[in-house]
Design a protein around this nucleic acid. Structure first.
Lengths: 295, 295
DNA sequence: CAATTATCATTAGAAATTCTTATGATGATT
DNA sequence: AATCATCATAAGAATTTCTAATGATAATTG
């Protein structure tokens, strides 16, 4: 059986990226942290943490990290059973999401749930490939991803799809598309890209206009707000979810370039490991909010 | 966090129904067991075990029992991740079932699964109400039951229904039903009942012949094999699942009294708490075997 | 490039915990 | 009522885990 003190030391080290800070957070000495970890590693017969040059959990450490999260959940279920009326401790839950979902419906889905379940949210925003990595390594308990792949004991539920529209500012439209919204004008129009992994624009141009987006001039704006702002400023065209730009369409800050040609991205909620009452309720909450958002 | 030593002491006490035997099983003194439990109870602020007159887990103790089973599962998942190729320790899993299912398809469903997953089976046989109680109290991890009720974080999957036929021996048929298989003859025929909770015969007589089984002469044979044996010996009629009596029908040890009038009992697999790769595979195995059996 | 700094490991003894032994308490059994 | 079975408690021994001090190693800096 895993020694609780050792496990605490281990998670604290990972959380603080330092033995000394971990020691401080546990109100013990650095030496004790070091000894606890050493003993834990010996009892499991595995190195858990790579200490240099940067503190990082090994493969085994990542498995233990998952275990720790599982443990927290069943412990919480126990305490709830023992004292249902009593205030539960705040439980920290890590979730990874892509930026689009974050900026649309995710927060409003999670806010009431976190309040109701006394959960502290540790949200990690990354592109889809990365959210998957975080899920695998045990850094997050669940993720929103556009990849279905329900691999290795991960459960995956569909959240429907999100339609991305091609948008630009009115001035940009006038400047670059006065000759019509067609292949020739798209070819010369600057593009705003969210980040390197962002394939939406490429897919759009390839699918509807047989263009290679890499040939276009590209702005990189790796911020959800900044991305839209840049487009509103007339610096280029890009892709955005309808719900994200409703108000901007109304007050004519933005216009749809191709109202009928959109890129659909399927979304999935993925979660690994054990399923508890809590994790199930989280999945339900996310599922129902996603349905509303993508109706 | 729950102290592992305390938890071990607690589960050992429950398993052995004695502090001293628990101590022996843990290779420590009875005093240590007593102290461990005391400390655990203090740290949780709850009495876990009623010591007199019989050792029994309290409400809180039952919750802790569930926690212990959950913990074992996530621990097993961890060790599998740490050393996939290494032999896992045997894990003991408790399951409750009704006798009928046990004597038909359950064992053949569980045998290969237990081997493949290195699981020791702790099977508890009881009638349906009791299997439920065992599930609620955390004494078993899952149960086969005829009640659907997926209450309190328990997942429930349907296993189809099982058809019970009214059977008797040829000699019994001759003796009691020479005047025809009808209400009058059923009224005078002795009944073989599996146990007190067994409602099948009562339901059969009430539904098809408007009779109250309590008016019949009744043998009580609380053993699955003994039950059939008693009927084969011509001591009375009773209800049995088709699959259980196929060979006996073939060699004419038994006959169907009313081939077209059967009692259908729906079956459900119920499991509480967390779901792990292991528990999911168990559910799958039971579901698929049940489908075959009840095709 | 040596010195400094930052960070984790190790050692030794102090502190805390947990065990064993011995005995006490309580309810069941004869 | 006496005995037995079983769990609780007390006190000291054994073990574990901590702190304090120091050692080792790699990155940083003048």
């Amino acid at each position: 059986m895993i020694d609780p003190k050792g496990l605490h030391a281990f998670t604290a080290i990972v959380a603080n990226n330092s033995f000394e800070k971990a020691a401080a957070s546990l109100f013990i000495t650095q030496s004790a942290v070091s000894q606890r970890l050493k003993q834990l590693e010996q009892s499991l017969g595995k190195t858990l943490i790579i200490r240099t040059p940067q503190i990082k959990a090994t493969q085994a450490g990542q498995a233990l990290l998952k275990y720790a999260q599982n443990l927290q959940q069943i412990e919480r279920a126990l305490h709830w059973e023992l004292a249902p009326r009593k205030q539960l401790d705040w439980l920290k839950i890590s979730i990874a999401t892509n930026a689009d979902t974050l900026s649309t419906w995710l927060l409003s889905a999670l806010a009431p749930w976190c309040t109701a379940n006394r959960v502290l949210l540790d949200l990690k925003v990354d592109d889809q490939d990365q959210t998957h990595r975080l899920l695998r390594t045990g850094e997050v308990l669940g993720c929103i991803s556009s990849v279905e792949q329900a691999s290795q004991g991960c459960s995956s539920i569909s959240l429907g799809k999100i339609d991305y529209h091609c948008i630009a500012s009115p001035s940009f439209l006038e400047q670059y598309f006065s000759g019509g919204i067609n292949r020739a004008s798209f070819k010369k129009a600057p593009l705003v890209v969210f980040n390197n992994q962002d394939q939406l624009q490429h897919q759009f141009l390839a699918q509807y206009f047989n263009l290679d987006a890499n040939q276009n001039l590209q702005h990189y704006i790796p911020s959800s707000d900044g991305y839209l702002e840049w487009i509103k400023l007339g610096m280029g065209f890009g892709m955005a979810a309808k719900s994200q730009i409703l108000s901007s369409l109304e007050n004519a800050e933005l216009v749809l370039l191709t109202p009928d040609s959109t890129i659909s991205v399927p979304l999935y909620w993925q979660q690994w490991g054990i399923s508890t009452a809590l994790s199930r309720s989280l999945a339900r909450q996310i599922e129902s909010c996603a349905q509303l958002a993508h109706q």
